[in-house]
Simulated assay, not measured.
Amino acid sequence: MTRFAQAVAESTRSVPVPRRPDTGRTRVTWRQRLGRDRVLVLVALPGIASLVLFHYLPLLGNVIAFKDYVPYIGILESEWVGLANFAVIVNGDPLFLNALGNTVIITLLQVLVVFPAPIALALLLNSLMSERIKRVVQSVLYLPHFLSWVIVVAIFQYMLGDAGLLNNFMRDYDLGTVSIIGNPEAFKALVTGQVLWKDAGWATILFLAALARIDNTLYEASAVDGAGRARQLWHVTLPGLRSLIILLLILRLGDSLSVGFEQIVLQRETYGADAAEVLDTYVYYNGILAGEWGSSAAVGMVKGLVGLLLVLGANKLAHRFGERGIYQS
């Protein structure tokens, strides 16, 4: 070995490269990682700032649930009242119980009707042989998602109102009329139908993507074994969608007590508070308009805690059934 080669070997041994004991890869510090991914970090900064500014910092305002909050003197100067604001929940305030009951019923309807609808639509679209027809149907189904709730409510009133297209058609053929718009008994079904029409098509995107990831050889093998379309659906397709279904269901449970503030507040005056009051509108009308800031903040806090507990419990249950859920415990 020449002197030059010996010098190179000595210099290499004198500066050892740190390696991970398990993988043998060069260890990268967080500063090196930050410098390497600086472009991605800069792109993500506006989203992170928005999340912190409009979602996490406002959580500090939940302290007014424990105070007799008066906007004119501020949070710090308002009197501390402890758990007194939670009396509307503990003592069963009739307005709160009415809003809670309506929220639970609408949530159950949406879970039972709206949640499975995108799965069925995705399966139907996936079964279409013509790609052109599939694209046209997808475009038609996606379009309502981009309409605001103001437009959606106006469309339903124009279609189903007393002077709407449906009742005019029924009058022309002496079929009588149906009372939907303005009928408190029909409100919950109407709200569910509006959500179904507006968002079911858009939600199919996730399930269509999941269907595209299912290996076609599984269908071929099941066909060789004599499985028909129904058995392929049950033993191949649905197991391929199971993880996504559980994930979305867990997320839906976390948001279960929020059933669409804008959609319902636009129709509350038409149907009345007894039928159309939910927890979100209760907080708005009882807190912002009536000035009961503390009790409304208490209701909002309890609603958030219930959603958190539902997510944690559903995720734990998913782990027991061998699914990943939304995070690994």
Rank of each mutant, 00 (worst) to 15 (best):
K188D: 08
L175Y: 10
G61F: 11
V137Q: 01
G176A: 11
D172W: 08
N167M: 04
P118K: 07
I105N: 03
P116W: 07
L124V: 06
G161R: 10
T177L: 12
L123Q: 05
S139K: 11
N62K: 12
N168K: 14
L121D: 08
R135I: 08
L109K: 03
T103L: 00
I64R: 09
V178F: 07
D172T: 12
Y173G: 11
I151T: 04
Y69M: 09
L109D: 07
Q110N: 15
F96H: 03
L128H: 00
L112I: 14
I151K: 03
A65F: 12
N85T: 05
M170Y: 12
A120Y: 14
D199I: 06
P118R: 07
E131I: 09
D174I: 10
P118A: 10
V137G: 00
V114M: 09
L76V: 09
T103F: 01
N62G: 15
M159I: 15
F86T: 03
I133N: 05
G176P: 09
A154N: 07
Y72L: 15
N91T: 15
I181P: 01
Q157M: 13
M170K: 05
F146Q: 04
V111G: 08
L109N: 06
F66W: 12
F146S: 05
I106F: 09
D199V: 03
V90E: 07
W197M: 02
N183R: 00
R132Q: 02
I73L: 08
E77R: 11
G82E: 09
S130W: 02
A117R: 11
P94R: 10
N102M: 04
D68P: 08
A120K: 12
